[in-house]
Amino acid sequence: MISTLEFSSFPFRDHEEFCLIAGASCEQQLLLIPPLFDEMNRMRQVLVDVMRRLEKQGIGSVFPDLPGSNESVVPSDQASLSMWQEALVRCLETFDNLGYVAGVRGGCLIDAVGPDLPHWRLTPVDGQRLLRTMMRTRVASDKEAGVTMTISDLTEQAAHETLNLAGNAINPGMFAELQAATPDTLKTVRQIRLNSDPKEADDKIDGSALWLRAEPESDPALAEAISQDISEWIRS
């Protein structure tokens, strides 16, 4: 079967946001929510690979751009978690045959859309963790430039101005949302982690934590494990 990966879009406020779709004619359709910030870039290749593998199993998927990232026309410094969630709701309305929702890492902070749909999560992470890594990177690059800055200095600044944290423009609203963000409690959720992760999960899969790597990489074993678990979950 030839993969039919294609671009599509969905209306968001006064414009369209892009999304990648695979297997549009399949009966079962999954909304795939990417990780956030740098982790999105590091995982994109694997997740597109997952979409291709799911299609081979007869499962279609929609992979949206979050406003302010990728091809979006929204300036990145205006993005917020609530804006991203609003965009996912629009995406679900546009592709009204989406029956399942999967979130990866920070994507699990905005996946409480389609409350009655079954959800799947891979290694959810709190917003505070994402912020700390971004702030640490900023502290280190400031240090290299001869500027002494601490995480608490940055936290104070973030309350009233947009900060550049590791290449991401984080406005005060986004900063506050991230500080408080934990994955929402959902009706039906299957939670998956990697075998190397000591935390509890419904099941563990093989693969490497590519979202942590400095350089984007591919991992066919991880893509296979993810798509296998998702297709078994959808069929169960």
């Binding site: 963790r129 700390r132 890594t133 971004m134 280190a140 995480i151 590791a166 000591p198 400095a214």
Partner: peptide, 25 residues
């Protein structure tokens, strides 16, 4: 491979895995 970006991620992951807080200083 161990650059400042990797160090930032490494410290946060250690905090998470061991349930500790690591201060800047």
């Amino acid at each position: 491979e161990l650059d400042s970006m990797a160090v930032a991620g490494l410290l946060t992951e250690l905090e998470d895995m061991l349930d500790i807080m690591i201060e800047d200083d």
